[in-house]
């Protein structure tokens, strides 16, 4: 390695360290400012809570062991809806790809459903499905399924025309074209759609928990609001940020592992 390359690498590493330290600094400063402002009564700690109060709430939730129940519920609902959404989206996308007439028929409906704010259907879902976890799953599916279908289907449509021609010249059947070409080639698109999907699913689950639930992070937040315990609300939001970050990173990790040839 020559000197300039070494120099360049060192500069890149230094830049990375600077970026990370500033990011951490921003978070730390945010919490300090929040704490100080609440402590000096510049902002009302009743309305805005404070880091120390959030910490108190958090330790209380951990000590009673209640926290795990809520995290687990939200996580379970999210992963279940995610799995159903992706599998169903995959199957439906295959159907749309194999039967172009079908895709032409459902296209306007998909677009309409996609632009509809799904939360508007919430109350109806509760009446139809019942005030239980199923309603939450349905809510999450409404949000992630359409996106899954559209992403995967568009991935299929992007299949290289030359490769399709090649398989046609081999006399490949529709099924063979799908398994040998269309699906493997859309692997990247499908995997990158998982990241969007997990965020969408979490939105759906929390929305569902707002509407109907007895446990879960969404329940913690809505319960905290109802009893005006803003520290509980803040704790819930904090947990949610952590959960969504971890889920996103996990999917990104899986994606990276699988896209490596």
């Amino acid at each position: 390695m020559c000197k300039t390359t070494k120099e360049l690498l060192r500069m890149k590493r230094r830049e990375k360290i600077i970026v990370h330290s500033i990011q951490i600094l921003i978070v730390v400063l945010f919490f300090i400012a929040w704490e100080v402002l609440a402590d000096k009564k510049i902002i009302s700690s009743f309305l805005f809570s404070s880091p120390s109060k959030v910490w108190e709430t958090l330790t209380m939730l951990v000590s009673t062991g209640e926290i795990w129940r809520h995290i687990w519920t939200t996580l379970y609902e999210t992963l279940l809806s995610f799995a159903i959404g992706i599998s169903a989206g995959f199957v439906i996308a295959i159907l749309l790809y194999e039967f172009p007439i079908l895709s032409k028929i459902v296209d306007p409906f998909l677009t309409m459903l996609n632009s509809l704010p799904k939360v508007a259907l919430g109350p109806m879902i509760i009446i139809w499905v019942g005030a239980n976890m199923s309603s939450i799953i349905v809510m999450a599916l409404l949000i992630n399924l359409i996106i899954s279908i559209m992403n995967i289907y568009n991935g299929f449509l992007g299949t290289d025309k030359n490769k399709l021609k090649l398989l046609a010249s081999f006399g490949a059947t529709k099924k063979q074209i799908l398994w040998y070409l269309v699906i493997p080639e859309s692997k990247r698109t499908i995997l990158s759609s998982l990241k969007i999907n997990i965020s969408m699913t979490l939105i759906g689950v929390i929305m569902g928990e707002f509407l109907v639930s007895k446990q879960g992070i969404g329940y913690l937040i809505i319960y905290g609001t109802q009893v005006f315990n803003l520290s509980l609300v803040m704790t819930g939001i904090l947990l949610l940020i952590i959960i969504s970050f971890v889920l996103y990173q996990a999917i990104a990790f899986v994606e990276k592992k699988l896209t490596k040839i």
């Binding site: 290289d160 490769k163 090649l166 398989l167 081999f170 040998y180 080639e185 040839i261």
Partner: peptide, 20 residues
């Protein structure tokens, strides 16, 4: 060349045979 990037050279070469 329309080779499939996720298949090895040998797997690419026998693709037509496999399909037929």
């Amino acid at each position: 060349d329309s080779l499939f990037p996720w298949l090895t050279i040998y797997e690419n070469a026998i693709l037509g045979l496999k399909i037929q």
